[in-house]
C-alpha cells in the first residue's frame, strides 16, 4: 500500500487528437495493420503520466549535439553535406518554456541513407556521419544542433514514394504524458506535399507547424544556414480551484 500523498501540480490538459495525425491512413500502408480499431480509454491524468524521467547534464558529452563531428570525433573529418544549425524552443500549451528537458534527433545523411542495417538505399554511407544527437534545453527552453541537411529518400509504400528531407525528433518534457516524437521538414521542399506520412496530419495549419523556416538571423556567414523549429508539448491545468483543502 502507498503511504504517499498526491503531489498535485494539476492534471495534464487532455490531448486534442484533431491536432495530431490520424492513426489509420490507407495511403501510409503500414498504418493499416498498426492502428488500433477500438476507441482509446480517456481519463484524467494520474501520477504515472504527471511524473516522468529527468536527465541531467552529466550524461551529455561535449559533441552530443554536433552531428557533424560526433561520429568521427575529429575536426578534420566532418560529415559531408550542407551545414545547418537546427534550433528552437520547447514550450508547453500555456506558452511556458520547458527547461532542462532532453531532445534527441536522428536523420539520414546528405545522400538520404541511414546508418542502419535495414537501410539498403543506393546512396553511400558517409564514413564520418552517424546520424544521432541529443541535448538538453536551457533555462529558457532553447535547444540547438549543428548537423547537415539530410537527403530525401525513396521508401516502399505506393509505387514511387519519397520522404521529404526530415529530421526525427524525440522530446520528453517533464511528465511521461508529454512524451512526443515528431519530424521536422524544411521550408520549400516540394516533397512535403507528396508525402503520405506528412499527410497523416489532416489539419493544414498543424502540418505547417512541422515545416521549419530558413532563419537567416541565426545563420553564420561562411559557415552554416539555420532552420528554426519550435515544439509545443502538452500543458497542465492549474486553477485557483485546484489543490483545494480537505473539506472545502
Amino acid at each position: 500500500m502507498s503511504d504517499q500523498a498526491y503531489i498535485d501540480q494539476g492534471p495534464l490538459i487532455p490531448r486534442n487528437r484533431a491536432a495530431h495525425p490520424v492513426p489509420y491512413d490507407p495511403d501510409y500502408k503500414t498504418s493499416v495493420p498498426r492502428s488500433p480499431n477500438q476507441p482509446l480509454l480517456s481519463m484524467e491524468s494520474t501520477l504515472s503520466e504527471e511524473t516522468g524521467p529527468r536527465f541531467g547534464h552529466s550524461m551529455l558529452g561535449p559533441l552530443d549535439n554536433n552531428l557533424i563531428l560526433n561520429y568521427s570525433k575529429d575536426a578534420a573529418k566532418p560529415a559531408v553535406g550542407e551545414r545547418i544549425l537546427m534550433h528552437g524552443r520547447v514550450l508547453d500549451e500555456m506558452g511556458r518554456p520547458v527547461p532542462h528537458t532532453l531532445v534527441e534527433i536522428w536523420q539520414a545523411n546528405a545522400g538520404g541513407r541511414y546508418r542502419h542495417v535495414k537501410d539498403g538505399y543506393l546512396a553511400p554511407l558517409d564514413p564520418n556521419f552517424g546520424g544521432c544527437g541529443r541535448t538538453l534545453t536551457d533555462e529558457n527552453g532553447c535547444y540547438e544542433f549543428l548537423t547537415i541537411r539530410p537527403g530525401a529518400y525513396p521508401w516502399p509504400n505506393r509505387g514511387n514514394d519519397w520522404r521529404p528531407m526530415h529530421i526525427h525528433i524525440s522530446v520528453f518534457g517533464h511528465s511521461f504524458g508529454q512524451r512526443l516524437i515528431t519530424q521536422m521538414y524544411f521550408e520549400g521542399d516540394p516533397l512535403i506535399e507528396r508525402c503520405p506520412i506528412a499527410a497523416t496530419v489532416k489539419s493544414r495549419s498543424q502540418l505547417d507547424r512541422l515545416v521549419a523556416p530558413l532563419d537567416m538571423a541565426k545563420a553564420r556567414p561562411l559557415d552554416f544556414l539555420a532552420y528554426k523549429f519550435d515544439i509545443v508539448l502538452r500543458g497542465r491545468r492549474q486553477t485557483m480551484f485546484e489543490n483545494r483543502m480537505e473539506g472545502l
Binding site: 506558452g95 536522428w106 541511414y114 526525427h168 524525440s170 496530419v201
Partner: peptide, 23 residues
C-alpha cells in the same frame, strides 16, 4: 494557449536515435 505540435511516426530507424548501440 498554444496547440501541441503534431506527432509523426518514429519510423523504422527510431533505434538509431533512441538506442543507437542496440542498433
Amino acid at each position: 494557449t498554444l496547440v501541441e505540435t503534431p506527432s509523426q511516426t518514429a519510423g523504422p530507424y527510431v533505434h538509431i536515435g533512441c538506442i543507437p548501440s542496440f542498433a
